[in-house]
Design a protein around this nucleic acid. Structure first.
Lengths: 218, 218
DNA sequence: TTAAATTGCCAAAATAATTTACAATGCAAG
DNA sequence: CTTGCATTGTAAATTATTTTGGCAATTTAA
C-alpha cells in the first residue's frame, strides 16, 4: 500500500463522505417544512448521531454555522451539495434491461437528484424498445461510442452476473469514471473508477449474523 | 454510548461480518469450478484483500485451515454459512407492491440463498393480486397478524417514503427483528432491530464526491 | 528426511474514527 | 450596553480498527 495522501490536504474519511448525502436529505426535508435554522444537537437527534460528530464532519470542509445559533439550512445545503458535486446534473447510462433494468429505468428517484439516464443498452434490442419514453435501447456494441458521444460519466450495471465483469471492463475502457453495480459479484476495476455495489442478498446475509443470536432465545 | 461489549467475548467488527458473505459467494463459485482447496493468498488475490486480513477475519470464529495446505473450500463454506446464520431458511414479507415491490418479489436471487418471501402487503390489494404466484396480497392491517402467524422474521420495506417509517414501526411491533429498507429515508428503529438500507441515490451522491475531482481535469 | 508452503496467532505499529472539552462567539432579554 | 445562555469549531484525548511483521507448528511433496 503506497501513501498517496502526502499532498498537503487532510484526507476526508470515507465514512464522512457517506454521511454527507444523509445530511443533505434531512436538511432538504427540514427546508420543505419551512425550518430555517438547526443546531448540531437537533440534527443529531434526527439522525441518531452525536452533535460532535456532525460538527466534526462539517469541519473537514469549512465553517458553516454560527455560534450560539446553529446552521442556516439553506446555506448549509447549498454548500454540501457543492462539496458532494450534486449541485449539477450527471449523465448516466443503463446496461441491461431485464426486470431489474426496467425497474431502474422507471425509478422516479434519480432525476430529481440530478442523475439522468440518457442511454440504455441491451443485446436484445428489439424486445425492450417499447415503454421507455425518449430513450432508445442500443446494442451493447455501441456502449463505447455512445458514452463518448454523449459524455456520459456514470454506468449503471444491471446485467446477469456472468456478463457483469465484461460490461464493467467495457465501461471503463469507454472512459466512464463511476459505476453503480447491481450484479451480485465482487467487481474488479482500476483504482480511479468509483464503484458502488447494490446487493440486497449481501445485506440480508450480514443481517442474519446478528439475528440468529436473538433467535436462539425463542 | 454505553459499552455493551464487556461480556467476555471479543466483539467481531462489523466490517468483518460484512466481508463474510463475500467470502461465501466467492467460495461457492470456486466450488462450482470444482476447486477444492484454496490458500489465503489465492483468496486474497481474487478479492483484492491481503492474505493476513483474511486469516485474521476467520480467526474471530475458529480455525478452518490446514498449515502448509490452505482451506478446504466445502468445509470453510459450511462453517461460514453457519456463522452467518444462512445455513437455514429465513422467512420474509414484502410491504409495498408498486414498481419496486414487484421487481423485488420477482427477483430470483433471494430464494436460492434461503430468503423466502412468504407474504406481501399493500393497501391497494385488488390491483396487485395477479401475477404473484402463490402469494396473496394482503391489506397492511394484517401485517401484525400474519407476521406472527407465519413466524416471519424479516420485513422488506418498499413503500413510498412518507409511509415507510410507519410501516417500520408496525413491523417492529409485530415482532420482526430484521428490516431491509428500500425507502429513501433515515429510518428509526430500536437497537435490537437489524436494519439494512438499499439506497441507490445515496450511493450515487457519495460517488460524485470522488468523481467531481477527476472531472475538473477535463 | 528435508525443504517449501501455509495456517493461526500474537504483538506492535499505523491509521482512522469518535468523543471530550472548552475558548470564542453570537443572540436575546432586560 | 451588559449579562447569561446557546452553540460552533477545533485541539487533544480516547477508542476502535486495520495492517504489518514475524514465527512456531504443521502439512505436503520430493
Amino acid at each position: 500500500m503506497q501513501n498517496n495522501k502526502t499532498i498537503t490536504q487532510v484526507e476526508v474519511p470515507e465514512v464522512v463522505v457517506q454521511r454527507l448525502p444523509i445530511y443533505v436529505r434531512i436538511l432538504s426535508q427540514l427546508l420543505e417544512s419551512h425550518i430555517e435554522i438547526i443546531s448540531s444537537h437537533q440534527l443529531g437527534e434526527l439522525l441518531q448521531i452525536t452533535p460532535a460528530q456532525i460538527r466534526k464532519d462539517l469541519s473537514y470542509f469549512g465553517r458553516f454555522g454560527k455560534q450560539g445559533r446553529g446552521y442556516n439550512i439553506q446555506f448549509l445545503l447549498d454548500e454540501l451539495r457543492q462539496i458532494l458535486g450534486i449541485d449539477r446534473a450527471w449523465k448516466a447510462c443503463l446496461i441491461g434491461l431485464g426486470r431489474l433494468g426496467r425497474a431502474i429505468i422507471n425509478y422516479p428517484g434519480f432525476s430529481p437528484e440530478g442523475f439522468e439516464i440518457v442511454a440504455a443498452f441491451d443485446n436484445n434490442v428489439a424486445q425492450y424498445n417499447s415503454n421507455l419514453g425518449t430513450i432508445t435501447v442500443q446494442s451493447m456494441d455501441e456502449i463505447a461510442h455512445t458514452v463518448k458521444e454523449k459524455n456520459i460519466s456514470i454506468g449503471i450495471v444491471a446485467v446477469p452476473s456472468n456478463q457483469a465483469q465484461s460490461v464493467i471492463d467495457t465501461l471503463v475502457e469507454s472512459g466512464i469514471t463511476g459505476i453503480l453495480n447491481y450484479a451480485p459479484i465482487a467487481p474488479f476495476a482500476p483504482k480511479h473508477i468509483v464503484m458502488r455495489n447494490i446487493d440486497p442478498v449481501l445485506s440480508l446475509q450480514s443481517m442474519t449474523f446478528y439475528m440468529k443470536e436473538n433467535d436462539e432465545i425463542n
